[in-house]
């Protein structure tokens, strides 16, 4: 009985911890930014497909240019976990596999958010990821989803 209670609370505790991690992943430690030519033209659930190279063209026909945090950056761990469901090395191997088979154009790994913002601004069809704390640097580029903006 005591064990059941202990297991029950322990299970509850584990659920709390897990829910905290999930929240941490999805609580927007990063923000997705896109070039203004494609802003407001995608659906929210499709954003990860674009970042994972699964979709190569935006709905308006523009080619997707992917920029991701460099594996050496702080944000890489979160992005690898949240988008690629793996660690940084796994993310690298993910892209290695795709590129080795010639299926996608290679993404651009960028070290800082400032550089990511500049890259996305400069490249038509570009999509990137920055830390949430730098939201004010990229107001105009923050992604606006089609399904949330009637």
């Amino acid at each position: 009985m005591v064990y059941k209670i202990i297991y029950k609370y322990l299970g509850l505790l584990l659920c709390l911890v897990a829910s905290h991690n999930l929240f941490a992943q999805s609580n927007d430690t990063y923000l997705v930014i896109v070039n203004e030519t494609v802003n407001n033209s995608i659906k929210k659930k499709e954003v990860n497909a674009y970042l994972r190279g699964e979709k190569n063209y935006w709905p308006n026909g523009t080619k997707v240019v992917i920029s991701l945090p460099s594996p050496k950056s702080e944000l890489a761990v979160d992005v690898a976990q949240a988008i690629f469901k793996t660690n940084v090395t796994g993310m690298q191997k993910y892209w290695l596999s795709l590129i080795f088979q010639g299926r996608v154009d290679p993404p651009n790994f960028i070290m800082t958010d400032e550089e990511t913002i500049a890259f996305v601004k400069a490249n038509k069809g570009a999509i990137g990821v920055i830390q949430s704390k730098n939201k004010q640097l990229a107001n105009d580029l923050l992604i606006k989803f089609k399904d949330l903006n009637p």
Partner: peptide, 22 residues
């Protein structure tokens, strides 16, 4: 290209070699 991709995050060299192969 594989080494550069994994060490320096530069997949461009690998991509060029693969395109050449293809």
């Amino acid at each position: 290209g594989v080494e550069l991709s994994l060490e320096d995050d530069n997949f461009q060299q690998l991509d060029k070699s693969i395109q050449y192969y293809k």
